[in-house]
Design a protein around this nucleic acid. Structure first.
Lengths: 342, 342
DNA sequence: ACCAGGGCTTGACACGTTTCAATCCCGCGT
DNA sequence: ACGCGGGATTGAAACGTGTCAAGCCCTGGT
């Protein structure tokens, strides 16, 4: 590997290491002629700064950690994009980690990020209840919760009102005349899932319609297919006429399985998804879905984090909550409607 | 931040720093009683190893870089998953970077990864021709090209035969009786795009059918919509009856736009995508697509990299090429066929 | 001629580890 | 009683950088 150090540059340019360091970090402090000579040596020797040494010496890295539940989920990639934009403006870099909804993997990532001495952490934790995060905060790690509300007031959080989102979906279906509604999603240990279910069930209660809950082991297309199988095999008299899914991947899987079995959407079963990912509108039947400001979520989370990093003294923790909207499309409306635009 | 160092642990446990280091790295070398005492101190003080210092001292980090063109593209997230699995087995960690197809962002990422002294690099470069990568290799960086064949023999590469993929798509369409075929994709400076086009055009030539090329500025759903607009507005006599897209995102956008304008797929325009992402089969009209072993691509790339890292002397660079397959679905077949399974 | 002051440069120390030769201690064989 | 071997521990050096007090030289003012 490129093993040239500041010392060799110094020797080559006939100056001291301190001067080279100054050229790199405060170029205005060094005389123009010297600066040029040093820069020439740097180029000639192919010198590359050693980030480990810099981090060690200055006591802090230029990295923030972003831990998400599923990198393959477009929701999180959009969040990541927002977070990365802000981080980039701050001259830092994002270390993107995928917990895959597995507490053990999450633990390993957190351990590593802490060893890395990252500046801070943006995280959608697998389990909100775990004390691990609190311990991190107590040890001085700056943490912002993403897509999750903080129970404590010792950190910032950026979230979307999932109860409201669930309610939007549920009451929309009730308004469409559905009397048997199902909710597909899980595991309910995930806070978002629980909140969305909560919203749907409140809406169902208010409208006086029955709610059936099908818990899934994960939030993937495959789990959606499996749920679709379960629903399709119910006797028609018991089968729900509409389903709210905890996210779009489930909804897409469900839709796919329905179609495969010859059940029509929305006539036989109406479907509402959650997240409004790009593929939702492009699905076999354009999917109604609860839309969240994904990229903004990431942006704001990162901004809060850097606010805390840059002025720790007069920073006070905030809990930001966005409101979702329902994008109504064909999968949940009986009358076929012409879409006004793409 | 947790600022306890090995020195403080040593003092607390009444041993020397060397011993603490040994407890951490070669626990079998230290007497059981001492080990337990040290471990107790570690827990009590909440000590966390400083990765920067370790990397500096040992001269190498435990990180490999993975630079992709688009993290939001499921193709790359699957590649990343494969690469991460292998990296994880090796006790290292992946730093996932998104160049967004922008040479400048790619440059910044490479610079940072080099400063980071990463163990190696898995990369799908924006521009194969750029000398930057060669310079990196010359400076001793271990590089494996992903989804791209290496012109040089100074590094490994893992790719899929894109010419073959294009040919599969093209001859499939010709066999279906199409006489006017279009190719949608771009920019053609991207090697994959050029190769796929090459394959399609060879197939067209062999079958003696006309090929029209629509170059797009990027490989996104939106670009697909725009291309769809262009195609739909051609006079029917000139309009291609089938389209091969350079990736599935384009195909989905194209499909969406066709449907919006009342053109039927596949009757009016047949479509074949590329990548066979999960959403392809779930699209409005299930999408025919060229399937690549995405996760395997990432796995093998990482395995080659670690082979080179772990035994640099007897490692010889290899160019691995996988063969793609065509997944035929409704979007390119005239007769409706029942899908055999999900 | 001398001093003050300011612009540049230097040199040494510190950051937290790992590594390794040197040392220590203890029990065993003679 | 003595030396020896070997396991356990120590202490110091090094990794590459940032920082900062101290020193250098030169100019301008008196």
């Amino acid at each position: 590997m490129s093993t040239t150090s500041i010392k060799q540059v110094a020797q080559h340019a006939g100056v001291s290491v301190g001067t080279v360091s100054n050229v790199l970090n405060r170029p205005e402090m060094v005389a123009a002629s010297t600066r040029q000579r040093v820069q020439a040596s740097i180029r000639e020797l192919g010198f590359v700064r050693n980030e480990s040494a810099r981090a060690l010496r200055s006591g802090r890295s230029r990295t923030v950690g972003l831990v998400v539940l599923d990198v393959a989920n477009p929701f999180f990639t959009d969040v990541a994009r927002g977070a990365e934009a802000v981080t980039d403006e701050q001259g830092s870099v994002v270390s993107l980690c995928n917990s895959g909804d597995d507490p053990e993997r999450e633990r390993r990532h957190l351990e590593r990020l802490e060893e890395q001495r990252v500046q801070g952490l943006l995280i959608t934790p697998v389990d909100t209840g775990s004390p691990r995060l609190d311990q991190l905060v107590e040890r001085g790690m700056r943490v912002v919760l993403v897509d999750r509300r903080s129970g404590r007031d010792n950190r910032c959080s950026v979230a979307v009102d999932d109860v409201l989102g669930g309610r939007l979906a549920g009451s929309h279906l009730a308004e469409q005349g559905h009397r048997r509604i199902a909710f597909v999603g899980g595991p309910t240990s995930i806070r978002q899932v629980a909140d969305r279910l909560d919203g749907v069930s409140r809406a169902a209660e208010e409208a006086g319609v029955a709610l059936r809950v099908l818990e899934t082991p994960s939030l993937t297309v495959n789990a959606g297919r499996a749920a679709g199988e379960a629903i399709a095999e119910l006797p028609v008299s018991q089968r729900p006429t509409s389903v709210t899914c905890a996210n779009d991947l489930l909804a897409l899987g469900l839709l796919q399985e329905m179609t495969r079995r010859g059940l029509r959407v929305p006539q036989d079963v109406a479907i509402v998804g959650y997240d409004d990912i790009d593929y939702a509108a492009a699905a076999a039947v354009p999917l109604s879905s609860v839309r969240q400001p994904r990229e903004l979520l990431g942006r704001i989370a990162a901004e809060l984090l850097f606010e805390e990093i840059n002025s720790p003294e007069d920073h006070e923790h905030r809990q930001v909550v966005f409101e979702p909207e329902l994008a109504v499309r064909e999968s949940s409306t009986h009358r076929r409607r012409r879409r006004s635009n793409g």
